[in-house]
Design a protein around this nucleic acid. Structure first.
Lengths: 117, 117
DNA sequence: CCCGATCGTTACGGGTCCGTATCATTATCG
DNA sequence: CGATAATGATACGGACCCGTAACGATCGGG
């Protein structure tokens, strides 16, 4: 099943959802943080700092800081890997799953409202 | 024509495009700036600082600063309204139109790659 | 056992963005 | 006119994020 979407529709969808995100006082995640959050919640665990950095093409401190701020928001949590104590395993949280679900609702709702191109 | 998209597809689409944006050194626009840019290029002119601020639900300095930085990137330009010299009319640019088009390409391409939910 | 490699974190200097409050300029209306 | 309103820009203090470089902790091979 292929999702057919025309350029004009794509732009309107992108705009509407971004307007929602701006107005929603809750979600002030940056583009990088959003990419990290969705990677954690959509790809199979385990997730590590190094792995995410490579996946996104950014440096490790970027991941560490993003995990700090998203951890403060309760969207993710960290745990030391007991087998190899150098590693840190990034874990999902209930609040994080809810936030991801909320984003999915936003996108699908706006997509449904799109008229013809 | 309604765009049917399932939650899982929406999230994967969102993630893929965000990964592209992160990797693309070019586009480091914030969520707010993206919303402003798309509003300028998708809604009918004329656009003013005050109008955009009301449209997005943010304060005027947010718009002024966003126009400053996006102007530096050549994505928009400003012109004083000659009829009412208090107003500033925001104008589109070639570079801005190209950036918007590029975003549309990104979204449509990623949408086309989406498998079944 | 020890030394190099690996992992995540932190320090640093610089840049950007935010909201509130204030400002200069211009228009409007009595 | 002069007072008031409206528009966009700016100052300020604080918060966040970036990349580079360095660091402590841990593992693993010789």
């Amino acid at each position: 099943m292929v999702l057919e979407i025309k350029p004009t529709q794509a732009l309107r969808l992108w705009r509407e959802v971004h307007l929602d995100l701006v107005r929603d006082t809750q979600a002030d995640l940056s583009v990088r943080q959003t990419a990290i959050l969705l990677t954690i919640y959509l790809e199979l665990p385990p997730h590590t700092v190094r792995g995410l950095a490579a996946r996104l093409g950014v440096t490790k401190p970027v991941i560490t800081r993003a995990l700090d701020s998203m951890g403060k928001l309760g969207l993710v949590s960290r745990k030391r890997d007991e087998l190899d104590k150098r590693n840190v395993v990034i874990q999902r949280t209930v609040a994080g799953a809810l936030a991801v679900e909320h984003l999915a609702d936003l996108v699908t709702a706006r997509a449904r409202e799109l008229g013809p191109a």
